[in-house]
Design a protein around this nucleic acid. Structure first.
Lengths: 128, 128
DNA sequence: GATAAGGGCTCCAGTCACTGGAAGGTCAAG
DNA sequence: CTTGACCTTCCAGTGACTGGAGCCCTTATC
């Protein structure tokens, strides 16, 4: 299978697949014409990566997860630890965003949003 | 005031302040020795930027907000529109993260986290 | 007057995870 | 034989900084 088909199959852009090869996440074979050839295992790995990325794991986490996946002697504790740490970071981020959301929401509601220059949003940003 | 004091006063790293000058967000004066000199207005602008960034506005949004702030004939509607659009993006991001959180949470709880290799997290990532 | 510490300066490179584009090779259809 | 859709590599850019090298300036102390 060529890269275009692999991209369609996994919903990962062609450019991204090439990038994943560049950084050593996948190792597709090469045809005599230089084209990448994707086997089922490569497609499987790409799909794995796609799902891990969709859960917000960093590329380095993905690399580790793939290594763990391929290591038959792994301990599930290692996977769980990684996922828990990531979950904690997501929760932190959500709290941060919720705090921004709350402030912004107040400000937006306090602002008339008309043609006059007076604006509580700017007043807040400029406050000492 | 030199850059170090400006940094302390506004809680913005020295490096970041220099970067803000680079991209034209602030225009501190220069002393004869080449050192940047920060007036009260510069400090005020930096603090404004700090608060806007803390609310998650992009640098380009910050630039626009500062222009609006300095334009006495602005319409508050323009500020509100910007803030509302940003609020929408924050809400999108929160929803995305909550969805990740939910999935990850399920997976983490399903995983024994012991020395055995069997792991629902990896099984999910590898699922067809 | 020498020196050391603690500022400041510029410029370059790296971060993360792609993404766009240029310049060119390959392949199947008409 | 040409067209168009693929594919290739390589280089540069994104956002918002951050780190480091190599240098200059100022102030205090010996």
């Amino acid at each position: 299978m060529n890269i275009g088909d692999a991209a369609k199959r996994t919903d990962i852009p062609v450019k991204t697949i090439r990038y994943y090869e560049d950084i050593g996440l996948i190792r597709p074979l090469r045809d005599t014409n230089g084209y990448r050839v994707f086997r089922d295992t490569d497609i499987h790995k790409l799909a794995f990566l796609g799902r891990a990325r969709a859960l917000g794991f960093s590329i380095e986490d993905c690399r580790t997860l793939m290594e763990l996946y391929e290591d038959e002697t792994r301990a599930s504790a290692d996977v769980k630890r990684l996922a828990q740490e990531h979950l904690r970071q997501i929760e932190d981020k959500i709290m941060q965003l919720r705090s921004m959301q709350a402030t912004l929401n107040d400000l937006v509601h306090a602002c008339a949003g008309d043609s006059r220059p007076d604006c509580p949003i700017l007043r807040d940003l400029a406050s000492q």
